[in-house]
């Protein structure tokens, strides 16, 4: 079963002026371990692609988007998962994208 949770887990926001940005970030896990070779895609409210980042070696990712409805989609070998959320300026969203092993 593939699930996407939503609890804190993104990279540190130290040094970033969060008051001016609509930020979503998080961590990608598979079987509880960070996904070091995965890709996270940011999709807009219509489901259209906006941006993509590879996960870091710690499984983390971050996007600077605009306020509104968004989703992220995790791609890794043999599995995917997706999470929807809304973004506001100054209120970073922290996600855990978790694929059960």
């Amino acid at each position: 079963m593939i699930t996407c949770g939503a609890k804190a887990g993104g990279p540190s926001l130290d040094g970033i002026d969060v008051s001016k940005s609509a930020i979503v970030q998080g961590i990608a896990l598979i079987g509880g371990e960070p996904v070091g070779r995965g890709y996270v895609r940011l999709l807009d409210a219509q489901g259209d692609f906006t941006a993509e980042v590879p996960t870091s070696s710690e499984g983390q990712f971050r996007f600077f988007a605009s306020p509104g409805q968004w989703s992220v989609r995790l791609l890794t070998a043999g599995a995917t998962c997706e999470a929807k959320f809304s973004l506001r300026i100054g209120e970073p969203v922290d996600l855990v994208l978790e694929i059960a092993s």
């Binding site: 940011l42 807009d44 259209d48 692609f49 906006t50 941006a51 993509e52 980042v53 971050r62 996007f63 600077f64 988007a65 605009s66």
Partner: peptide, 14 residues
């Protein structure tokens, strides 16, 4: 991206 085209964003969202 549409957001950069419209002027909502100045750079790619990552």
């Amino acid at each position: 991206s549409p957001q950069e085209f419209s002027g909502e964003l100045a750079a790619p969202a990552h």
